[in-house]
Amino acid sequence: MTNDAKEEHTTYINVPEAVGIFDTFEAQQAAFYDLRSVGFHHSDISLLGTQEALEERLGKAYWRASELEDDPKAPRANFVSEEAIGELEGAIAGGFFFVGSAIAMLAMLTPASTVAASIAAVAIGGSPAAVIGTILARRAGKHHKDYYENQIRHGGILMWVRVRDQEKEDLAVKILKGHSGRDVHVHGWSE
């Protein structure tokens, strides 16, 4: 009989980590930007992973933020700003418009085609593609919004910050608390 159970190994780093819980995305985002502005690297700042990652890693369909803030097995994710999501949405929608327009234009590049016909082909070919791109872009934005709403429903948005010395520890705690972070504290390890 073979054991197909996936054995998980969690590696801990002997670097302290500040943690706080935020009730709004805006407060958490402001804390992130302040941490970055005083020198914290984006790779030292993490958020709780997705619901799917939680269920896969911990087997918990229901959880509270306060239960996971000091759990080294809680899955982590990088912060993604609203600006980055907006850029992604623009790139998706614009990319689809460009591809549709380019295909239509290539089809019209014959010696017999006129400039007016080529412009019409670009507009006609790009419009349906732009609609598809817009739908996909909205879906990406909705996924981002749902991620934060799910965390707020479960007690708040978790944020962890690696702090390599006492000065950084004090600064991270001050910033997290300054942006209405709850239960802000430091534990002696990070993942």
Rank of each mutant, 00 (worst) to 15 (best):
M159A: 10
R139T: 13
M159P: 02
I13V: 12
I124R: 08
M1N: 10
E149Q: 15
A61W: 03
V80H: 06
A140G: 03
V163N: 02
T134V: 03
A77R: 10
I92D: 00
R164A: 01
T50Q: 08
G141V: 05
K6A: 03
A30S: 14
W63G: 01
T10N: 07
T134Q: 14
R164V: 03
W63V: 08
S43K: 15
K6N: 00
I85Y: 02
H144C: 10
Y148N: 06
E191P: 06
R182H: 11
P72N: 07
W189D: 09
F22K: 04
F22W: 06
A117E: 15
F25G: 01
Y62K: 12
E169R: 03
A31D: 07
Y12P: 02
N3I: 05
R139M: 15
E8I: 13
A120K: 14
L158V: 00
E83L: 09
K6G: 00
M1V: 11
F32L: 06
E191V: 15
A30L: 11
G86R: 04
T2W: 02
A5L: 12
N14S: 10
K168P: 00
L136W: 02
E7P: 07
T114I: 14
T11K: 05
L171S: 13
G141Q: 08
E69M: 15
A18Q: 05
D71L: 05
I45F: 08
I124E: 06
A130C: 12
E67Q: 11
L54N: 12
G59R: 10
R153M: 14
E26L: 08
L158T: 00
G94D: 04
K177I: 00
H154C: 12
I13G: 00
G20P: 04
A104P: 13
T10E: 13
S101W: 06
V161S: 03
P111G: 08
T110F: 03
V80R: 07
Y33N: 04
G86N: 11
W63R: 05
G39Q: 10
R76L: 09
D70E: 15
S113K: 12
I157D: 00
S43E: 15
K177A: 00
G133W: 02
T134G: 12
L54M: 14
E167N: 07
A53C: 00
V38S: 01
I92G: 01
E89K: 09
F97K: 09
G125V: 09
D23K: 13
A18V: 07
A116R: 11
A137L: 07
T110H: 07
Q166L: 11
M105T: 13
F97M: 12
L54W: 02
S190A: 14
G156D: 07
T24I: 03
Q51V: 09
W189I: 07
Y62M: 13
F25A: 08
L47V: 02
A27M: 02
S37V: 07
L48I: 11
L35E: 01
E7G: 06
H185F: 07
H42F: 13
G125C: 11
W63S: 07
A116L: 12
Y12N: 06
G90C: 01
V184A: 11
S180I: 00
